[in-house]
Amino acid sequence: MECAEVHERLADHLAGTLAPPVAAAFEAHVRGCASCARERGSLGAVWQMLGTLPADVPDSARLRARMAQAVAAAGNRLADDGDDEAHDALIDPVRDVTREFTDEADAAADRDVSPRASDDSSRRAGPGVSAVRPQAHARPVSATPPRFGVRSGDAARPVRGGWPWVQVAAAAVLLASGVWMGRQVAAPARPDAEMAALRQELRETRELVTLSLLQQQSASERLKGVGWTDRLDEPGDAVVSALLDTLVRDPNVNVRLAAVDALARFGDRAPVRQGAVDALARQTSPLVQLAMIDFVVEVDARTAVPVLRRLSQDPALDASVRERAAWGLERLG
């Protein structure tokens, strides 16, 4: 076997689909050819690493419910087109799927008392590219119209599909800013109370936008939400709580790191210091652990000492985390 053929067979070799005689010839060549051995080694390493990437798993219950809705809509179109047989064939499975999902959703609603848990489902909900969406369809498919894929309360939550809501809030910020600036420049002096009310309104609207962005599905949008906290001089407890919540629960390490930086401004607040200590104890990402150790040291959070001690002695943790925790202990101790 020559080098060219080895390259041609490399994909089969990686997939393990070479026939035994070909595999033997392949191995014989690679043993005697440093160039092909290097190629096999480096591509094999990448191939192996690809195999360790976790699969992207869908939210099957939601997909199933969306399919039920979409198929029902398709069934209605078939009936409209006069294909009654196909329409009838579609309706029963739709009812079954819908019933199954509705029961599941009810059970989940009973279980789901944590606001954050329900936020996760709203984050995942999104319109994307399809023309068919889970929504009330034009024609009921059964005597009792099913609740396709919409959990109670979903409509009120900010979701990716809820952009108009965010846009309205952003527009309100701009409007309030314009009104405030206009009054500053052109209008006669207003009583302090009115100005304070306008400022309060502006601040509350900004907080609303921030909180909304922090609930978005996209990590980029949540990062923007963390960035919006810079625009708030004195953010209320809701925003600070949302940042702390992000720090503990956000699935994206970059968003959590940004939340650490954003919270640094509020390090003088006792709840922030305590919240950071609690969050440090629950972190699993070494990168965030390192950033938070720096944070608790920077804000002089003495209550972090027991957590730092535990981290510095935990053999299961990354060595750099243990070292940084020991450094933090020295600083705070």
Binding site: D56, R62, L63, M67, G126, V129, V132, Q217
Partner: peptide, 9 residues
Amino acid sequence: RAAAEDLVQ
């Protein structure tokens, strides 16, 4: 992921 869900449908 959102686009993938739409496309599966």
